[in-house]
């Protein structure tokens, strides 16, 4: 077993629309770690995790994944295939059934045969509690169900890590729990997860570590309970105060 971190990030910078958003991020994500990212709106949380799979191309710094530097080029698609991402707005493919949402990328990207892809998809749908909805179209599902399909779709690629960007923010409050449950299950199974979230309870219960992003840098990081229940950083204190 390798002890090298799965993500090794040094000096990551990114500007959007001429404005510096990330001003030098140093961060390691260990294998099997659940890292929660918190911070005020506009602090660059989404930008940070979008840089991790190069959906947003970093301006500067280095990202190593699984011991290899990630660079723009022909290998980028392979990197993306190894890192699952779940979005706030689900972004399911509306013209495809639930099952086809899950089989598309494994067949196209990994070259899986249809039969194998279907077996894999059905297994995952069962795991997220949607075994009976494989023939449905996304628009026929509730938000919570759609988000669980989106998680299963990402998992169908057998990724080494999963990125979650405020995946419960677009959900009605009563549907948040079912999605968080799926994420807890993943964490229990040892998935490496980077989770942008406003759920401090989730961070405390599931997270191994929390980083507080502020002004484009990591202003504070630590063990969730300690960091969130006894914040020392005045900015973090203020941020947590706002949430209550």
């Amino acid at each position: 077993m390798s002890v090298a971190p799965l993500f090794h990030i040094r000096g990551l910078t990114k500007s959007l629309g001429g404005r510096p958003i990330l001003r030098g991020i140093d961060l390691d994500v260990r294998r099997g770690e659940v890292l929660c990212v918190i911070g005020p709106s506009g602090s660059g949380k989404s930008t940070l995790i979008r840089c991790l799979n190069f959906i947003e191309i970093p301006d500067g710094g280095e990202i190593q994944f699984d011991g290899h530097p990630v660079v723009v080029g022909p290998d980028l698609d392979r990197h993306r295939a190894q890192v699952g991402m779940v979005f706030q707005k689900f972004n399911l493919f509306p013209h495809l059934t639930v099952l086809r949402n899950l089989t598309l990328a494994p067949m196209q990207v990994l070259g899986l045969g249809a039969a194998e892809a279907v077996v894999r998809a059905r297994d995952l749908l069962g795991r997220v509690g949607l075994g009976d909805r494989e023939g449905a179209f996304p628009a026929e599902l509730s938000g919570g169900q759609q988000q669980r399909v989106a998680i299963a779709r990402a998992l169908a690629m057998r990724p080494k890590a999963m990125l979650f960007d405020e995946v419960t923010s677009a959900l009605d409050p009563e549907l948040v729990g079912e999605v968080l449950e799926v994420m807890k299950g993943l964490a229990r199974d040892g998935m490496t997860m980077v989770v942008v979230t406003h759920h401090m309870k989730f961070a405390v219960e599931v997270g191994h570590r929390v980083v507080f992003l502020e002004g484009g840098v990591i202003a504070e990081e630590g063990e969730p309970r300690e960091l969130l229940e006894k914040p020392k950083n005045p900015r973090l204190k203020e941020f947590l105060g706002h949430l209550i």
Partner: peptide, 29 residues
């Protein structure tokens, strides 16, 4: 929605695959 391209690319689909399997069918419809 831009999210369609992003979701497709995030899964590792190439630009061409995303176009063929995700964007074109929706645009055509």
């Amino acid at each position: 929605d831009r999210g369609q391209t992003e979701a497709a690319r995030a899964l590792g689909l190439t630009r061409r695959q995303a176009l063929r399997h995700v964007l074109l069918p929706q645009a055509f419809r």
